[in-house]
């Protein structure tokens, strides 16, 4: 499949403009919001900091929010690309497959029963949760006669997601204090997160970003089919495990910082493939940029929908993503 951007020259140009667009959206995210600030104030907050309310908001709330939004958006989109490629399932993503729910469950478990509040531990719990879900979905999906089919894997994901969701709810019923603490986080939000939350996961996310960029060739070969890939000398099992680890880092890291944010991972890879075709050399960087842009755009709009309150960004991405999701399913690559 070819995308609408044909030549490598244009692809490079658009990739460059995409990075600028991402920067513009991040700047908008710093300036726009309930507290009225101008570009000038925003700039002064960094050059001539005077301790005023506006400056404090920009430095301590808006800037971290923009940065976290970009990092999480990129990570979720990359997780979606990898997952769709290795399962050859156009609606694969970390939320549909229950990875986000698994990571969320482990964190709520830690908060309500073991009083864990260290960010370092959160990170590892989120990784564990995402990994447990991923392995369970893979095993459940490939059980039975026909092996791993998209529909079976999707259903297995829904089962695992439902299981972790009801167990999480059960814990919250027993513990009202935890409910208050984690409710907003559970909906998926990048509001009020401090940059310190990002630091413990950032190394893993950066490794996973680099890893995703490096394996584009293997991904392209894998897309030809597992048998073909094998006959071309690819060690498919090793490759799948490697991709799985990257996905767990990306999904677990995002959930630890921002809670389970859905639909970015499904929608973005489709837009990227529409633009540049199936070659993952381009799909991966384009998805990364688009993921960041989309999440920040959703976050900015989430500030204005029900002023003066805010909608969690996870709700916004669901609202934007669902029509798109339905379109993908109806286009019907499923038989």
């Amino acid at each position: 499949m070819n995308g609408i951007i044909q030549t490598n020259k244009y692809k490079t140009v658009f990739l460059f403009s995409g990075s600028i667009l991402l920067a513009v959206f991040m700047a908008l995210s710093v300036v726009l919001g309930y507290t009225d600030t101008s570009w000038k104030t925003a700039l002064e907050a960094f050059t001539h900091f005077n301790g005023s309310n506006e400056h404090l908001i920009i430095q301590n709330a808006r800037l971290p929010r923009a940065l976290i939004g970009a990092v999480v958006g990129v990570s979720l989109a990359l997780a979606g690309v990898l997952l769709q490629a290795i399962t050859r399932n156009p609606i694969a993503s970390t939320d549909i497959f229950g990875l986000n729910a698994g990571a969320g469950f482990f964190i709520v478990l830690a908060v309500s029963f073991f009083n864990i509040t260290s960010l370092q531990q959160f990170t590892w719990l989120a990784f564990t949760g995402a990994a447990v879900s991923a392995i369970a979905v893979y095993l459940l999906g490939s059980a039975g006669r026909n092996g791993l089919t998209p529909i079976k894997m999707t259903l297995a994901g829904a089962v695992i997601a439902a299981m972790f969701a009801s167990l999480t709810q059960g814990m919250l019923v027993a513990n009202e204090k935890a409910l208050e603490e984690v409710l907003f986080w559970l909906a998926g939000s990048i509001q009020g997160r401090k940059l310190e939350w990002l630091y413990p996961v950032l190394p893993y996310l950066l490794i996973a970003w680099a890893g995703s960029m490096l394996i584009f060739r293997q991904l392209n070969i894998f897309l030809l089919g597992e048998d073909v890939a094998k006959s071309l000398g690819q060690r498919t099992i090793v490759f799948k495990i490697l991709a799985g680890v990257l996905i767990v880092f990306l999904a677990g890291g995002s959930v630890a910082v921002a809670g389970p944010i859905g639909f970015i991972g499904i929608v973005v890879p489709h837009i990227a493939r529409y633009l540049v075709g199936n070659d993952h050399r381009w799909v991966i960087p384009y998805s990364a940029l688009l993921g960041g842009i989309l999440l920040i755009a959703a976050d900015i709009s989430a500030r204005y929908i029900i002023l003066p309150e805010e909608v969690p960004v996870g709700v916004m991405t669901a609202l934007i993503g669902t029509p798109f999701f339905i379109h993908i399913v109806r286009k019907g690559q499923f038989k």
Partner: peptide, 26 residues
């Protein structure tokens, strides 16, 4: 087609869960 039915169902389920959380927060 049963396949379409289940996939649309799963997608809408995820979206509805997000909206439910929104209602709880409000």
């Amino acid at each position: 087609a049963p396949v379409r039915l289940i996939l649309i169902g799963v997608g809408l389920m995820t979206a509805t869960q997000a909206l439910t959380t929104l209602m709880i927060i409000l």
